[in-house]
């Protein structure tokens, strides 16, 4: 289980002089890996590189044994990966089924009968069996997102790249999506970019924190939570030493940072660990 399925070394990509992804080295294994980071941390760019949608300036990576830096390697890698981009687009006049079928053709599934079966299977899997004949323009936001997930799942890819799939979903839909992702993670490598620390806490066996193009943390969710051990405390007043602090419903302040002597420590959460893992930046810029 610990054998890496996707490994990358020294991935670097610059846009107009800024390094969006800066010397990223990663080894992914089967199961769901969460990718956390503030806006502009380079998460989307890293995912686009790993999904072969863009090419890095430097560095190399392999996807399930295929090297995408060659033409055939990229084709082979694309056969075994599924990608759900940040803002998936659709042909609004297609039905859900037609669209997924279209993506299936583009994934080189040419046999009509088995392709249709596959399209029906993934639409069933994401719970869209009843609306697969509806035009995409008539579907709700959550349903569209599920169409995109179905498109990514076509062909049973071994490596699934999901870029903020739960953005804009209501709690129930998000719960349903978590189920789907957890299911997808069984026997697959899933890389899930998200802003939701709960997603990571509930789904992932591993979490990577990125900021300014670099990996700031790589470990299990428990290890990320442990970063905040002894660094979360309560107080009655605003604390100058706190990196973040807010008045909670009880009227007390909950602080994250470097506690003063004798502070009333409390149990940290994954989010506390994430905030601290981001390092020395002003927390006000961190969007959680």
């Amino acid at each position: 289980m610990t054998r890496p399925t996707v490994s990358a070394a020294g991935l670097t990509l610059s846009y107009r002089g800024t390094r969006a992804v800066d010397e990223v080295t990663l080894r992914l294994t089967e199961g769901v890996t969460g990718l956390l980071g503030p806006n502009g941390a380079g998460k989307t760019t890293l995912l686009r590189i790993l999904a072969t949608a863009t090419v890095p300036d430097n560095g190399a990576f392999t996807v399930l044994g295929h090297d995408p830096s060659t033409a055939t390697g990229r084709q082979d890698a694309r056969r075994v990966l599924g990608y759900l981009p940040q803002n998936p687009g659709f042909h609004p006049d297609f039905t859900a089924f037609e669209f997924v079928d279209y993506v299936a053709i583009l994934k080189d599934l040419t046999d009509r009968r088995s392709r249709h079966a596959e399209a029906r299977r993934v639409l069933d899997a994401v719970g869209l069996a009843d609306v697969r004949g509806k035009r995409i323009r008539k579907l709700s936001g959550g349903m569209k997102q599920r169409v995109a997930l179905a498109a990514a799942l076509v062909g049973d890819p071994g490596f699934l790249v999901l870029d903020e799939p739960t953005v804009g979903l209501d709690p129930e839909q998000r719960m349903r999506f978590r189920e789907l992702i957890a299911e997808a993670g069984e026997g697959r490598t899933v890389l899930l970019s998200t802003h939701q620390t709960e997603d990571v806490a509930m789904l992932c066996h591993r979490v990577v924190v990125m900021d300014k193009g670099r990996v700031r943390f790589d470990g299990t969710p428990a290890e990320l939570t442990a970063v905040a051990d002894g660094r979360v405390w309560r107080s009655t007043e605003r604390q100058p030493g706190a990196r973040a602090g807010w008045r909670t419903g009880t009227g007390e302040f909950r602080n994250v940072g470097d506690p003063p002597e004798g502070a009333r420590l409390v149990e940290p959460t994954l989010e506390d660990g994430y905030l601290l893992a981001l390092g020395g930046d002003p927390v006000a810029e961190v969007a959680v």
Partner: peptide
Amino acid sequence: DDPARHTTGAVPVP
């Protein structure tokens, strides 16, 4: 023009 360009951004058909 292809609104689904990103959704179909990484497929084997060139």
